[in-house]
Amino acid sequence: MITMENIVRDGHPALRTVAEEVQLPANETEIKQLTEMIEFVKNSQNPEMAQEYNLRPGVGLAAPQINVTKRMIAVHVESNGTLYSYALFNPKIVSHSVERSYLSSGEGCLSVDEPIPGYVPRYARIRVKGTTLEGEQINIRLRGYPAIVFQHEIDHLNGIMFYDHINKENPLKEPENATPVSV
């Protein structure tokens, strides 16, 4: 079981490493790691489990955050009454909108302990391809908050942290051609 002790913190080299593709079909170790990742995200949102295991609530987790530099992400987020719950090997953004969006509250990260103020410009709509735990190839269209969460996690696979996107001169300057999204 993954706990907060397994989450590497900002400054750890795994967070700046470009993760390797998972050779498919995934091996037992990779399947176990990805299964534990999605369980962690779900558990972190359950108030009793979060309290019992001292988990910070999260909506996504990327393998580099548990010091595994492989292309695996877990996302469990609800938006407008729809649950987006995915554990994916080799997720890839295959298309995106020109329009941008950003979280009006700013972004946070389980690997970053302090709040970092600023808007993070993201694509408003994306299409992601990946392989599920069951080995099924999927293609999902995302917009709004789920699109932002997926982009955040896929950035981790490329050694990119959310704050890398924040305008250094003026962190709270609204990104151009971007619509605010609230959680």
Results as ranks from 00 to 15, higher is better:
residue 118 G to N: 03
residue 181 V to F: 04
residue 169 E to Y: 01
residue 15 L to R: 10
residue 144 G to M: 03
residue 149 V to M: 10
residue 81 G to V: 13
residue 77 V to I: 05
residue 20 E to R: 12
residue 35 T to M: 10
residue 136 E to P: 00
residue 21 E to D: 15
residue 30 E to N: 14
residue 3 T to W: 08
residue 85 S to R: 11
residue 69 T to V: 13
residue 136 E to K: 14
residue 152 H to K: 12
residue 140 I to G: 00
residue 123 Y to H: 14
residue 138 I to S: 07
residue 126 I to M: 03
residue 45 Q to H: 07
residue 107 E to I: 11
residue 31 I to C: 12
residue 136 E to H: 15
residue 43 N to P: 01
residue 40 F to G: 02
residue 143 R to S: 05
residue 4 M to Q: 13
residue 144 G to L: 04
residue 125 R to I: 00
residue 37 M to Q: 03
residue 73 I to V: 09
residue 180 P to M: 02
residue 88 L to F: 08
residue 43 N to G: 03
residue 5 E to K: 12
residue 109 C to Q: 07
residue 166 I to W: 05
residue 18 V to Y: 06
residue 168 K to N: 07
residue 125 R to E: 14
residue 153 E to S: 09
residue 83 L to A: 10
residue 11 G to D: 11
residue 17 T to I: 03
residue 68 V to T: 11
residue 108 G to A: 13
residue 180 P to Y: 01
residue 34 L to F: 06
residue 64 P to Q: 13
residue 140 I to S: 05
residue 117 P to D: 15
residue 176 E to H: 12
residue 136 E to D: 15
residue 65 Q to Y: 09
residue 34 L to E: 02
residue 9 R to I: 04
residue 153 E to N: 11
residue 62 A to Y: 02
residue 86 Y to G: 01
residue 108 G to Q: 14
residue 49 M to T: 01
residue 94 V to I: 10
residue 80 N to F: 06
residue 62 A to G: 05
residue 30 E to I: 09
residue 105 S to Y: 08
